[in-house]
Amino acid sequence: MQFPLRSSPQKDSALKNTEPIIKFENFSFYYGKKKVISDVSFPVYKNSITALIGPSGCGKTTVLKSINLLYRENPEARAEGKIIFEGVNILNDKYDVVELRKKIGMVFQKPNPFPGSIYDNVVFGPRIFGVKNRKKLNDICERSLKLAALWDEVKNDLRKSALNLSGGQQQRLCIARTLALEPEVILLDEPASALDPFSTLKIEDLMYQLKNNYTILIVTHNMQQAARISDYVAFLFAGEDMIARLIEFGKSNEVFIKPVKKLTEDYIVGRLG
């Protein structure tokens, strides 16, 4: 077994790889008749961290939930345009939802451990995909918890309820739960917003390590966090018509240092939202 070593904080290391794993093309989104996102196009590069930033209510979470088709649980919601993954537009039913969600994991804003033990939580995914072998499940559990930097804290308490963990631990458990399915892409929806600064640092650390093997798309409100950890950044903004549009997309060290658009600059320095 090989675990990814901590990568150097050199951001450009990942940028050498410029093959997009997901591509948004003219993506629009509706709730009922109301348009909420209009004409968004940007790539998500493999083995990099892409941050989605923008004021609250500008559809960042909706973008995430479109990638794993979770928006479909809401009968009012409808997406248009294309999201290309593995050469297929996943929006037009060609891609099997369950298989897609196995390959694209998601971690939510609030930690949402399932009722049950830590172990049950981690092996939830493998179990529903038919892994029954005890040994295999144990291996998956250990490996995922180690990847999520939680193993040392919980290795003696695997049978205890996941609800007894602290908020930060719960969130890392949710990351471990996602990693257990060995996804290609991990979507993180403000994963640290409900956590204390120390737990936040731990999660950021974790993302650094994970990006060697995974592609990460993270929604965040925290500019410093976005600047610290992301390789690419996409800035979404909803104007007076309440329809979100992509204002700017680029490498983080360029966007954060010298944004092209005035709007982006205003947002980054805190003059907006």
Binding site: E99, F129, V131, D139
Partner: peptide
């Protein structure tokens, strides 16, 4: 390389 503990083929039938 990842440890592919989940084998790909049976998953399709499983789904």
């Amino acid at each position: 390389e990842k440890n592919n503990l989940l084998v790909e083929r049976p998953i399709k039938c499983r789904i």
